[in-house]
């Protein structure tokens, strides 16, 4: 009986072990996914933004929770267009792979949020310091479409003075 239990246990344990290369590749994939999240959010590219999430992924912001790609897409399309200048400046990031199909991450970002669009040729928005500094707590999963965000929660940590005018 003891040998049988050991037989069951070993393969599961081995499956959970990741080589350094596998772990590094997962970390790179998840960091690229976060960059996509930030750029598509800032550019109000609703389809691309929604596709950084798994089909039933969840976006949790201070304004509420949005579950599923349709709801996440609507979160972007419901904003005024062209969108106000907005930058998610990603900083420190710690991605922890759990297996070939799951990883968790904590990332810091500085947010600059304007009050009008800045298109080519427009003058920049006058900003005295940052709008805020936030943490993203993210659950990543590896799907048939590649690595996707299963859940991301934004936690606001620091408020800055923001707009000068």
């Amino acid at each position: 009986m003891r040998k049988f239990l050991l037989f069951l246990f070993i393969p599961i344990t081995l499956q959970a072990q990741l080589s350094n290369l596998e772990s590094d590749m997962i970390i790179i994939s998840c960091e690229q996914l976060l960059a996509d999240y930030a750029i598509y959010r800032d550019h109000l590219d609703a389809d691309s933004f929604a596709n950084t999430f798994s089909v039933d992924g969840e976006l949790i912001l201070g304004s509420g929770s949005y579950k599923g790609r349709d709801a996440i897409r609507t979160n972007i399309t419901s904003r005024p267009a062209p969108g106000v200048a907005h930058m998610v400046l990603l900083m420190s990031s710690k991605i922890t792979p759990q297996s070939m199909n799951e990883a968790f991450g904590i990332s810091y970002a500085v947010i600059l949020n304007g009050n009008r669009p800045v298109l080519k040729g427009d003058s920049p928005i006058r900003m005295k310091g940052i709008t805020s500094a936030v943490e993203y707590h993210t659950h990543f999963i590896n799907t048939e479409e590649g690595w996707k965000i299963a859940r991301i929660e934004l936690r606001s940590m620091v408020r800055g003075p923001g707009l000068a005018d």
């Binding site: 200048a85 600059l112 920049p124 928005i125 006058r126 900003m127």
Partner: peptide
């Protein structure tokens, strides 16, 4: 480059 934000001072 596109400058989006600038210090007012």
């Amino acid at each position: 480059y596109t400058t989006l934000f600038v210090d007012p001072d």
